[in-house]
């Protein structure tokens, strides 16, 4: 796992030095400390997987002849995600009180989008990772920052958020740069992208109880996460598509159903006409 000397912070993992001592970690019980080790270690694994996803996004942007600035930002995002994995591993190590290895690699496979043309598939890959996953990540991390009070965890969440916002922008930028015909094709795919992303976030294993103590160390409670997911869709993603003039009736219907069902809608058949 390596990040580049020419990355966002010239080889440093974070923009600012992280707090070297954090008495709130020392004050934890062994059990609570172990829980937080697993939270941050698991985060290292998913951050690492997102680096693989950005390799796909960079490839897609090149195939789409996207603007050089956007391709460069996506290439940087690969590096950023490696830094995030290292940052998360480091934070886990601080809670563990010893240097931890990286967690095992999580599998990544590109969404197939078999019904889409090559060009549309590339666009969907950019949107799925950036306009959806990274936008959701930003809302999630904003909630983490709000609830975190342990110095190291709060600083780490702030560092992650500052990059994820950039990564989310790639999706909205590419969408704004896409011609109307492409945007129109995307509309029919929005509920499935939304549903899949919500499901991924909900099913992401979080093996810790909802406690204020853990939220203070960057592991928010279930209700806070649910609120962040709702915020992501209601205040960012759906208004984002509306801002770009795209119809969102289906997304609103899906979202309203989600609020009632509280579990992702299982959508079963695929016949785009």
């Amino acid at each position: 796992m390596r990040w580049s000397e020419t990355g966002r912070w010239n080889g440093k993992v974070t923009s600012r030095p992280l707090p070297e001592c954090d008495p709130s970690i020392d004050a934890l019980s062994d059990d609570d400390r172990a829980t937080l080790v697993s939270v941050w270690h698991a985060r290292a694994a998913t951050e690492r997987r997102v680096a693989d996803s950005f390799t796909l996004v960079s490839h897609a942007l090149r195939e789409l002849n996207a603007a050089a600035d956007l391709i460069a930002l996506s290439d940087r995002a690969i590096d950023d995600e490696h830094r995030h994995a290292e940052l998360s591993r480091y934070v886990a190590s601080r809670y563990a009180g010893k240097e931890l290895d990286y967690p095992p690699l999580l599998p990544f496979s590109a969404p197939k989008h078999t019904q889409a043309s090559d060009e549309l598939r590339h666009t969907l890959h950019v949107l799925g990772q950036c306009a959806f996953n990274e936008t959701i990540a930003s809302a999630f991390l904003e909630a983490c920052c709000e609830h975190a009070n342990a110095p190291l965890a709060k600083a780490a969440c702030r560092e992650l958020l500052s990059d994820e916002i950039d990564h989310a922008r790639i999706g909205w930028a590419q969408l704004a740069a896409s011609p109307p015909v492409v945007r129109n094709q995307i509309v029919a795919w929005l509920p499935s992208l939304a549903n899949a992303n919500l499901r991924m976030w909900r099913e992401s294993p979080r093996k810790y109880p909802s406690r204020e103590l853990f939220a203070g160390h960057g592991a928010p409670s279930e209700p806070v996460i649910a609120g962040a997911l709702a915020t992501a869709f209601r205040e960012l993603i759906i208004p984002g598509f509306e801002h770009l003039g795209m119809p969102t009736g289906a997304l609103h219907t899906w979202m309203d159903a989600e609020c009632v069902a509280k579990s992702p809608v299982k959508i079963t058949e695929h016949r785009l006409q």
Binding site: F108, E164, V187, P191, T268, E269
Partner: peptide
């Protein structure tokens, strides 16, 4: 027009039914 059936198993967007099955295996999250 979009509808989601009472059991929440199908989504219909206009004339098209869509699903998220071919997103299976993709679990980036953070």
């Amino acid at each position: 027009p979009a509808t989601i059936d009472a059991a929440g198993h199908d989504a219909t967007i206009g004339d098209a039914k869509i699903h998220d099955a071919d997103l299976d295996g993709w679990h980036p999250t953070k």
